[in-house]
Write a protein that binds this DNA or RNA. Structure first.
Length: 908
RNA sequence: GGGCUUGUAGAUCAGUGGUAGAUCGCCGCCUUCGCAAGGCGGAGGCCACGGGUUCGAAUCCCGUCAAGUCCA
């Protein structure tokens, strides 16, 4: 791990700190307190701040945040605005889980300069890992603000490192009125996300208020520094990554029994009132219950202890009956959780997450449904949207208020959807429960897993209603881990990325309409992949396919069929091997038709996206895009299906923008400047790496984009939306064509229409009317035919029965029925059987039907056997029930033989 | 990104390769002063769509579309 030297800071020495080893956990810590023997972290030390605040006065959330940020501003840090809680710039996490997440991966890796250095921020974060503990432990939250000061040091320029970091933290705490001897700094090496470094936890009165991480290692295969079995090496850049819990600071300043009573007492009270729960913290005995609960829950990992054990322990220490404790604490746990969860939802939906069945949207739905369950248990009748609105109205984000109508609509829709799922579930559970009750055995585990995994019915709810119906269920404690086990699958390894040094100059940005260029071959790989020093050919990227073109040397032409960017070099893949060598000078030519089609579709994508945003609302966010020569598709986040009228409006809006001939403006800007000017809406298509990002402005639409575009929207010509598809719950795909492809799409549709109109011999504008008339008539005729077949069968009955022979005392009819179809045969045979005949009817189409009446059945004659014997002669097969069977075969010529064989089989 | 499930009458659902069903709702008649209930009768189905296997597919296989759900 890390040696003492990593932690022996001048600051500690100068301030009179001593390094001690905790007599309980054995970890090292630093303290000013000469008599302290333990590290200060639960369970070595209990919470002592409840009822005894550690700061000189109470602070609310806003006040504390402002105090913190201005403290660091006054000490040379630049205050920067928070990032969204949905981590759109990351592809490895969905939610922002820490302030440093804002700067990963490009800033922390040194590829991109930080927006300011040093900086301070208060970043709302969401962590759903401890969802079960929220409300119960007194301290867990799904949503919290991580206040931080970050420094990005390089070997060339160090701003500050460990000493100054700890000093700033210590002075902040003392400035708030903390006793100097109250704080301990516990050594606790940190590792995560491919980085590691020494770290200290800042503990006051049993509460971890901050973690100060000195990130200077990166995971390296075979690295010489070993942490938890992984190898690490020193980084060239080293980062101060701190995290201060805003909510914990507020809690410590108030010393209330729970963190919830500290950070949103007004809402706790309001929800308690709505639920009819009395929550009087001024009652010392009542307050002590929650205080003691928080203290003891603070000492344990809630996974290790069952809640029941914890409860009886708490009841014991307070000296009340466990039932009394249960009664006081349980409704409040739910109320705390509801208030926490609705704040979480305010942030999720406010920052633009659309509930879905996948990705970040799934997490939002998870929280929504959990909250609805809690509300139901509390008997809260009001809509979830109202509670979230209360949260939004007490937070200071103007754009959320603007979007409130949409947010409420989303929540109402989710609430309704969940009610439907539960209703469906109730029916399913009823069916399952009755099935197993009749068999007199418990509903097996496999069924319970299927109910939950496939139909979303929580096992607790399933058990309750199943038991209400008199069935028992098999439900082990480790149910959820059993479910998880069914999902386990081997992870596939990613192919190692090719690394090629060097750089190819990209000419297509500066000269988007140049067709030819000259370049030198820098390298040839595998005989057919050519690296040039410069190129006009666009490599595949950003949902835009690669250009095609030609490289020419000395009159010989080499077709380029694919272009890929690897690192900073561009690989040109040739159709055939051989011919070009390192050092050759070549003349390149771009296939402009393809390039232009891509450019039109690319610019059109921006227009369709922006139009969708105007028509559907500001919650629209690009979830993916792909272009080709003849069509493009755009995936957008939207919480319901796009209806036809909206689609037409989007199409019209996009085409108006084409007609307005707006210029397309592209320029490279430093990343932080672009972000400052345009915000995160830039990153519709993901976050590009690099210090400079290319900003593409199409009228009011501004995006970071590396693709090739036309220079004026008029060049797109036309946009035709082809279809929409819901690729996920919450994500709509719009497919459209631009330019010539749009015209072709119109023409194809005209052809379809003309073709259909031609078949029905009507003008195209009468197609719908005529088609529906034909369809209705067809249905009517089908019914008429049914009736006629019925009548026909009755009419045939007389002549058929006249042909009957008697065999073994049974009336037998064996007949050829011309071209009759299977339906006619069936109906006639069934009627004969009703009259107690044994019938075998065949048709020249190779179909056979046999039917056996009462007497035949009594004698053991089976229609199936007759058919099998007869159909065999036709080279086919058949079967059915004893009283009615059908069959047939391809060898129609053998029909007589088949009937003869069938007749033989009638002798039982 | 992966797993599982479903698509049959207006609604809820049966139907495991052999003539498409039930319940509720709808319409008509009977009964009633009237209504409800009850009795009798009836209408209502491209069994999501396209292919395949088979003598035969709502049913089995493949694909498409639509919907639900769990996980990362």
């Amino acid at each position: 791990m890390f040696s003492e030297d990593e932690y022996r800071l001048d600051f500690f020495v100068d301030e009179g700190f001593q390094r001690k080893k905790c007599e309980k956990c054995g970890k090292f810590f630093w303290t000013r307190d000469a008599v302290r023997k333990t590290c200060g972290d639960p369970p070595c030390d209990p919470y002592t701040f409840i009822g005894a605040p550690v700061f000189s006065r109470e602070h609310g959330l806003d006040e504390m945040r402002e105090h913190y940020l201005s403290y660091f501003e006054a000490r040379g840090h630049t205050r920067i605005a928070r990032y969204p809680v949905v981590a759109r710039w990351r592809d490895d996490i969905y939610l922002t889980i820490a302030s440093i997440a804002d700067f990963q991966p490009f800033v922390t890796s040194g590829q991109v300069p930080p927006p300011a250095n040093p900086l301070t921020i208060s970043q709302p974060c969401i962590r759903l890992d401890d969802l079960d503990s929220v409300g119960r432990s007194g301290r867990h939250l799904t949503t919290f603000e991580m206040m931080a000061h970050h420094v990005f040091n390089t070997r060339e320029r160090e701003i500050y490192w460990k000493d100054r970091t700890v000093q700033l933290c210590d002075e902040l705490l003392r400035g708030l009125g903390m006793e100097p001897t109250a704080v301990t700094y516990k050594e606790n090496p940190w590792a995560g996300g491919g980085n590691a470094g020494p770290s200290v936890e800042c503990l006051v009165a049993g509460l971890e208020l901050a973690t100060l991480v000195f990130m200077d290692l990166k995971a390296t295969v075979g690295g010489s520094i070993k942490i938890k079995g992984e190898g690490y090496e020193k980084m060239d850049n080293y980062i101060v990554d701190t995290g201060y819990g805003l909510e914990r600071f507020v809690w410590a300043s108030k010393g209330s029994p729970t963190i919830y009573d500290a950070i949103f007492p007004d809402l706790v009270r309001k929800v308690a009132d709505l639920a009819g729960v009395e929550h009087d913290l001024k009652d010392p005995e009542y307050a002590e219950i929650f205080a003691q609960n928080a203290r003891l829950a603070g000492m344990v990992d809630l996974d290790e202890y069952s809640m029941k054990d914890l409860r009886s322990k708490i009841a014991g220490t307070i000296g009340i009956a466990p039932e009394r404790l249960e009664a006081s604490i349980e409704p409040m746990e739910r109320i705390y959780a509801v208030v926490d969860h609705t704040r979480c939802l305010a942030f999720m939906l406010g920052d633009g997450i659309i509930p879905s069945n996948v990705k970040a949207g799934y997490l939002a739905r998870l929280v929504i449904r959990r909250t609805l369950r809690l509300m139901k248990e509390l008997g809260l009748g009001l809509p979830l949207a109202d509670l979230v609105e209360m949260q939004i109205s007490r937070l200071d984000y103007p754009d959320w208020k603007e979007r409130l109508v949409t947010i409420k609509e989303i929540l109402d829709q989710e609430e309704q959807k969940y009610a439907e799922t539960l209703e469906k579930g109730r029916r399913l559970v009823k069916k399952t429960a009755e099935h197993f009750r009749k068999q007199n055995r418990p509903v097996p585990l496999q069924e319970m897993i299927s109910l939950y995994d496939t139909h979303g019915i929580p096992p607790e709810i399933a058990r309750e209603s199943a038991e209400g119906l008199g069935a028992t269920v098999e439900l082990p404690d480790n149910f959820y881990s059993l479910v998880a086990k069914t999902h386990i699958k081997a992870e596939q390894e990613e192919a190692p990325k090719l690394i090629i040094p060097g750089k190819t100059e990209l000419l297509f940005y500066e000269h988007p309409f140049d067709q030819t260029f000259e370049a030198r071959v820098v390298e040839v790989l595998d005989g057919d992949s050519v690296i040039l020093d410069r190129t006009l050919l666009y490599p595949e990227g950003g949902g835009q396919p690669a250009d095609h073109g030609i490289l020419e040397k000395g009159g010989l032409e080499f077709r380029v069929v694919d272009v890929q960017k690897v690192g900073d070099v561009v690989l040109h893949k040739l159709e055939k091997q051989g011919g070009l060598q390192k050092g050759d000078y070549v003349k390149g030519k771009v296939e402009m038709r393809r390039r232009l089609a891509h450019a039109r579709h690319h610019t059109a994508t921006h227009l369709v996206h922006d139009s969708a945003k105007r028509i559907l609302g500001k919650h629209i966010w690009q979830a993916g895009a792909q272009k080709s020569e003849d069509r493009a598709r755009l995936d957008i986040s939207h919480y319901k299906r796009i209806i036809d009228a909206e689609l037409k409006a989007i199409e019209m809006e996009a085409n108006r923008r084409v007609m307005e001939c707006e210029p397309v403006d592209t320029k490279f800007l430093p990343r932080s400047e672009a972000e400052k000017l345009f915000g995160f809406e830039l990153y519709q298509g993901g976050v590009p790496p690099g210090k400079q990002i290319r900003v593409v402005k199409v009228g009011s639409d501004i995006e970071a984009c590396a693709g090739t575009h036309v220079t004026n929207t008029g060049m797109i010509g036309a946009i035709k939306i082809l279809r929409t598809e819901r690729i996920q719950d919450g994500v709509e795909r719009i497919e459209f064509a631009a330019g010539e492809a749009a015209v072709r799409a119109w023409q194809e549709r005209d052809d379809l229409l003309a073709g259909a109109a031609d078949v029905l011999r009507v003008p195209a504008d009468q197609l719908p009317k005529t088609a529906s008339r034909f369809f209705e008539e067809w249905k009517g005729q089908q019914k008429e035919i049914e009736r006629l077949k019925e009548d026909l069968a009755k009419a045939r009955l007389r002549s058929l029965s006249a042909e009957a022979q008697e065999i073994d005392g049974l009336k037998v009819v064996v007949q050829k029925m011309g071209q009759a179809d299977i339906d006619e045969l069936l109906k006639a045979a069934a009627l004969l059987a009703e009259q107690d005949y044994v019938a075998l009817l065949g048709s020249e189409t190779g179909k056979l039907v046999a039917a056996v009446g009462k007497s035949g059945l009594a004698k053991g004659v089976k229609a199936g056997n007759i058919i099998k014997a007869a159909a065999k002669a036709l080279g086919g097969g058949g079967g059915g029930r004893p009283e009615l069977a059908q069959g047939g075969g391809p060898n129609v010529a053998n029909l007589d033989e088949a009937l003869r064989a069938g007749r033989e089989a009638m002798r039982a």
